[in-house]
Each structure stands twice: as C-alpha cells, then as structure tokens.
Design a protein around this nucleic acid. Structure first.
Lengths: 122, 122
DNA sequence: TCGGGTACTCACTTGAAAGTAAGTATAGGC
DNA sequence: GCCTATACTTACTTTCAAGTGAGTACCCGA
C-alpha cells in the first residue's frame, strides 16, 4: 500500500515522494498555472504576486529537476524563458485532481484552519 | 481546478489542504498502519520505532482534529486508547492510493534523491 | 513503598524551508 | 552614459516543524 518500509528496503514512502514533489509552498499554484499553457517567468510572477523571485526560481528549478516542467530558453535579448508541463508532469494531473477534489470537500465540511497547520507549542 | 484563488475568495488551495492533512512526517505511516485495524498508542510506537512519543501524540491529535482518525478511550487501568480510521478518513484512501502509485512510479523512473528534498543554500 | 506499564505533556534545541533585500549580465533605447 | 527589462543569484534573517529528554497521573503487584 502506502509504504514499503516493512520490506526491509530503505525505499521511501511513495506518498512522501508526492508530497516532496508538489509540497513546496508555491508548487501547486505554479503547476496549476502551467496546466493549460506555458508561461514565462515574469508571467508567473504576475500571476502569483505573493511569491518572491527567489522562491519562484527555486521551485521552478526543483520542478524541472523532478521532470514535471520543461524549461525552454529563447536566446533573445532581453532573455525569454518559457515553462510548461512535461509529459511526465501531465501524468500527475489526475492525482492532483483527486487531491483537489478531496481537499475541497474537506474544506467545505470543516472550513476551520486545519490541525496540520496549527502551531507546535501549546 | 486546483485553486480558487482567482475567484477573489480567500479560500485556500485544496491541494495544500491535503498536504497539510497528510503531509506531516509520520502521518502517511500512521494512516497506513491504521488502514486495516485499529491500533493502540503503544502498538503504533512499536510499529514505527523511529517516531518519538511527542510526534506520535501530536500527529494523532492532528489527525483526530481533522476527523481522519477516531480516538476511543477505554477507562481501564492502565489506560487503553485505540485509534482507528474514521468514515471521513476512509474517503481519503483512494487519494492516498493514487498518490502512492504515482510516487512509486516516479521513484522507479528517478531513484535519485528528488529535488524537493534538496537543501536550500548552495 | 518501590518499580512498572500506559498514554501522554512540557520546555528546550535543531535544522530546513521560506522570506528579504540587494546584486548580476546583457543589450537596446533615450 | 544612464535607464530599462528579463531572469535570475547571493547573503542574510525569520519561521516553524521536528527532535530530545525529562516529567506527570493513575493504579497494580511484589
């Protein structure tokens, strides 16, 4: 099922893999914006105004390393870089949609701030 | 789709909701162990030897607040407490399975440490 | 009355993720 | 010669989840 720790292998839990791949603070948002069309760095900046350039660049680089997005550089001046969903990235869409649906449902049923986001100390 | 930030509502991205609900370091593991049968606190401790009592208690409490697990106290001495999947928690299983399958697949294709887990500073 | 088992809590520390603010290279326009 | 734009990088700081280790309340059996 979720985990294979019990096999003695030091493989990691695949759910944690998904969480690490899409679990960055801005990654679901980035992925969502890239869903239908490729976007430039500056476009993503405008679409997600709260994200800093540093975090946007970092998360895009991580998504690229994980092969979820493709980075295309057009050698022009000023430079133009486009990000789009890769084929591998598209295989994640059904999973994201399932998560989205459940999360939405859960939020409707308990619109309170959820426990996972609560502070550590009492 | 994933997000409803664009509606002007300050609702949160449902994917982040899922991540917060199951994204704690030990939560997928706890959920996996509760999948087929309810477990006592001390049983979970033995099943997940690396988890500390503090983290186990904290994550169980969060899962309880999010209504994924049910906590049953038997008023005996020494005390006995049982944790099990709630009905709402069971609705999450297909989502976790989808995540699991994709994560497993992704791990097979790139067994390297994934970018999301990389350190921040260069 | 001493230790043991259960199910925790509490105060403190560590470390990684995220945020802030500034800097960089390139070239075209004024 | 200076400003602008793009797509970043770098150094430093803050925040917060997770870990450490000790303590608590309860009662039982030896």
């Amino acid at each position: 099922m979720f985990v294979r720790a019990e096999t003695g292998e030091d493989r990691k839990c695949p759910i944690e893999t998904v969480i690490q791949v899409v679990g960055g603070k801005w990654k679901p948002l980035i992925l969502w914006h890239l869903l239908n069309s490729s976007k430039r760095f500056s476009e993503l900046e405008k679409l997600i105004p709260e994200v800093t350039q540093k975090m946007l660049a970092q998360h895009l680089r991580e998504l690229e390393i994980d092969r979820l997005v493709t980075r295309t550089i057009y050698p022009s001046v000023p430079p133009k870089v486009e990000y789009s969903m890769s084929e591998h990235g598209k295989t994640l869409i059904p999973v994201l949609e399932a998560m989205c649906q459940w999360g939405d449902n859960h939020n409707r049923q308990s619109p309170k701030p959820i426990a996972g986001a609560a502070s550590n100390s009492v």
